[in-house]
Amino acid sequence: MLTKRIIPCLDIKNGRTVKGVNFVDLRDAGDPVELAAIYAAEGADELVFLDITATVEKRKTLIELVKRVAAEINIPFTVGGGISSIADVSALLNAGADKISINSSAVMRPELVSELAGEFGSQCVVVAIDSRFVEGEHIVHVSGGRIATERRTLLWAKEVEERGAGEILLTSMDHDGTKAGFANELTAKVSGSVSIPVIASGGAGNQEHFLDSFTIGLADAALAASIFHFKEVSIPDLKNYLKGYNIPVRIEK
């Protein structure tokens, strides 16, 4: 049976993990590859690397990082952040990334989704959607969730599916950082209206929140960052907990 995926997200700046990592057993607390290897060994199903490097020159460090991750990690990983062209994607995939995620650049120019799907295949095109609830509507936001657009979340999700996205990474900006649970109502609506997988993101605070994201939110995968980095939730414990509620999860023997 296809399992629900648990996905840790690593924020990357200048090739290093950004703050908020509390692993005493890391030799180098800023090395994304070492952290990624730990997550892979613990049973993470995929990894997401979100690059928040500000300058173009320093983005070259991302390519070097992707090569190191691909050489050492034996599970799939997605790279996102600042990707806006076929050339960007080509460089990341050639370096060994399995998927890329685009966000603001897709909103600004939706044809990019179609172009990437045509060039590289839908399987590697993840569209990240940052959504915020504004005056009774779920509205797509860009630039790290700061700027509201004219787009409604549900319609945008359907559009990117039609344009060839292979997966949707749905982040509720209202829930992100709250540790009060995922946006299950919104996630269920999006998941129910597209035929591609939906990754729930934003709001994970405990194991029960993951259970709810699958049973109520109908998510295909759930992503979190800080609660894994600070070991508030461990992946093996989480998977055993979910298994206890009959959620299909991958537990390596």
């Binding site: 296809l2 629900k4 199903d45 399987q123 035929s195 591609i196 997988p197 295909d220």
Partner: peptide, 11 residues
């Protein structure tokens, strides 16, 4: 398409 297509993930 009785389930999501593509099948993406661990089975």
């Amino acid at each position: 398409p009785t389930l999501k297509v593509p099948q993406m993930g661990w089975n």
